[in-house]
Write a protein that binds this DNA or RNA. Structure first.
Lengths: 187, 187
DNA sequence: CCCAGTGATGTCATTGACTGACATCACCGA
DNA sequence: TCGGTGATGTCAGTCAATGACATCACTGGG
């Protein structure tokens, strides 16, 4: 055993989720979170940039996963087909974490404007990354930006629908359905 | 003349824009802004919820304008046609303010993560409002959400392109072109 | 076996955003 | 003339966030 309990960041994440769900984001201080995790508030800020970031650590991995899927799409796919591949790839990400966790996390976030802001900037970052990836596939700048933003819109809408859907509905199905809705939208 | 100079909120807005552009958002304190506007920091918070909100006062009017346009769209228009009407209506809003102001404001916002977050939540709010409006037109929930989010994506992409375009290009033209790009995307 | 270096953490002080409670006082309407 | 109102000021306090510095188990070389 080391000098300190291992995985302070993980304990802080768990403590934050629990307290945000229990007392709400505003009713929770960083000191509360740190106490429950057995560290000091200063240590919290060594692991997370701010009080919001503690809930958004999976987002880089999700982004990487989707970007990788986009990059791996067939070279002859249209921009929108490639984006569809990327959005569908997000399903694998969510299959790896308990659905209940996703639901709780979404509930806390949507009920807290400050956390919602953070979530949105993650989505914007995702959009930028996907745009960049499309550009590298040779897609025209205007088309790339719009395709990426549209793809993110599909992801957001699908995720929200999935959260509210029965437990036996796989997220991949919801994404497929949302993509189909999009296709019908402009037809 | 009243006891105080009139329009404290307006002076605070101007002072904030000037200081954010000059020293950056982080390099500016609320006390700085209040000083330049000739009031105290406490008064700043009576007019604006926080240090970010002072740059986002036009956004409710923009949202109202777009919602009104959407509501006024022909009853037989498809969801996407109606959304196009709403997005195009935003042009009238920007025609009323100096382009240079829009550019400066956009420059400050895009270079400051905290302000970017606020901008994004305003866009999300716009999306929600447009979704609601589509629902009231009888559009199916799934279609409404997706159409609204897509419309917001078009607006965001078009605005960004407009900001970077020469001064003689009207925003309405850029929006038209972006809508055309979207149509080509799913074809 | 000892010792200097490393890294994760603690401690302390400070800044600045934001809030609640209360005071002030020109203005306005009865 | 007077009491009410509303925008502002003053003051004290909480909490997020950061910088500077101390601590000390662990590690690898001598």
């Amino acid at each position: 055993m080391g000098r300190w309990e291992p995985d302070a960041a993980g304990r802080l994440r768990e403590a934050a989720m629990a307290l945000y769900a229990e007392r709400g984001y505003d009713g929770t201080t960083v000191a509360d979170i740190a106490d429950r995790a057995g560290v000091t508030a200063r240590t919290f800020f060594r692991h997370f940039a701010d009080k919001r970031e503690v809930l958004f650590n999976g987002s880089e991995r999700l982004q990487q996963h989707m970007v990788a899927a986009l990059a791996a799409a067939p070279a002859d796919a249209t921009p929108m087909e490639a984006m569809a591949t990327a959005v569908l790839a997000s399903a694998e990400f969510f299959d790896h974490i308990p659905r209940e966790y996703s639901r709780d996390r979404a509930a806390v976030i949507t009920s807290t404007p400050e956390l919602l802001e953070r979530e949105l900037i993650k989505m914007a970052s995702l959009g930028t990354a996907l745009t960049q990836c499309l550009l590298e596939r040779g897609v025209a700048p205007d088309v790339a930006a719009l395709a990426a933003e549209t793809g993110v819109a599909v992801f957001r809408v699908a995720f929200e629908r999935w959260i509210g859907a029965p437990d036996d509905v796989p997220i991949a199905d919801v994404i497929q359905a949302t993509l189909k809705t999009l296709a019908g939208l402009t037809a």
